[in-house]
Nucleic acid binder design. Structure first.
Length: 285
DNA sequence: CGCGAGCTCCAACATGGTCC
DNA sequence: GGACCATGTTGGAGCTCGCG
């Protein structure tokens, strides 16, 4: 079945007709209720563009280094150097790709959480938690050049026993606000969410917000003049009520259409896969 | 008086224009 | 073409002010 796309621009709506399904891309003057009703059926851009942009995603963090110690339950242990979007380049024996990075983060958090709820959280687990949290901060800050290292130093300087409890609580409740530990504001907190729960969450990045969700009225965040997402309670709420709802809706629409894209799995093999919330955000990044 | 919203400051690199 | 300076970018932190 070939894909069939008609784009009608009226100035008020842009309507994509894809596989004979009507998909409304709301612009401004739809009520919230209407937006909510159609959100599962609307696509911000044609599906082939989503695929093209997602396959083009190329955010690498060559200098991101961390070490995971063996705790008895962990599969991925050792030194890791360099996080790459897809294939790990030749000559990077300790490099990992994004899918593997996700797995390691999830594994370390689960390992810590299991120990935490059984009231026996050894230092080794906490060391791993610190390492993996630092890696997330470093990865997120890579786009800011040499500041990444500084931000990690800041994170470690502000780390306390309370930080561990807060992270475990955040993980248990899937609560972005609680990931806002010392040295972590909304954008990096949402990176924790994205890596731990990639099916349901994505990073609320100033680029995605500034270029897509905010201009289209999908989000109504409080932004600074330069686009920085203010660390406000309203913005924290709107991550759940606006941003995430949008990502999930887009992923659901693409999956309903049977759209897949090529990615590289943890073992470095190319595979066809469906869109998760985090993939939508990666397309728009 | 406590809290939170949001303004201002800051660090360090990126980009770009000017002048010689 | 290169030294130099100005401006832009990005996101965390600190601080003030207003509100209940």
């Amino acid at each position: 079945m070939g894909e069939y796309v008609i784009i009608i621009t009226t100035g008020v709506f842009t309507i994509y007709i894809e596989n004979y399904r009507f998909l409304f891309h709301k612009k401004t003057n739809l009520g919230v209720d209407t937006m909510f009703q159609i959100s599962n059926k609307s696509l911000l851009m044609p599906s082939d563009k989503y695929v093209m942009l997602r396959e083009k995603y190329d955010y690498n963090s060559q200098d991101c280094k961390f070490e995971i110690m063996q705790t008895g339950n962990l599969y991925n242990v050792g030194k890791f150097i360099g996080v790459f979007a897809r294939e790990v380049p030749n000559g990077k024996p300790h490099g990992i790709n994004l899918r593997r990075f996700e797995s390691i983060i999830q594994e370390v958090f689960k390992d810590c959480y299991d120990a935490f709820i059984s009231n026996n959280l050894p230092d080794l687990h906490i060391i791993n938690l610190k390492q993996i949290s630092s890696a997330i901060v470093y990865w997120k800050m890579t786009s800011q050049g040499g500041r990444a290292k500084l931000k990690v130093e800041n994170l470690l300087a502000k780390w306390s026993d309370d930080t561990v409890k807060r992270l475990m609580n955040a993980y248990e409740k899937k609560d972005m606000s609680l990931f806002r530990i010392g040295g972590v504001r909304i954008p990096t907190a949402t990176a924790f969410m994205r890596f731990l729960f990639p099916d349901d969450f994505g990073i609320m990045d100033s680029r995605v917000v500034g270029n897509y969700t905010q201009p289209n009225g999908i989000t109504t965040l409080s932004l600074r003049n330069d686009g920085y997402i203010n660390d406000t309670k309203q913005n924290i709420i709107k991550y759940e009520t606006e941003y995430i709802i949008f990502l999930r809706g887009q992923a659901a629409s693409l999956n309903k259409l049977g759209i897949k894209f090529r990615d590289v799995n943890e073992q470095g093999k190319i595979f066809l896969t469906t869109f998760r919330s985090s993939d939508i955000e990666m397309s728009l990044f």
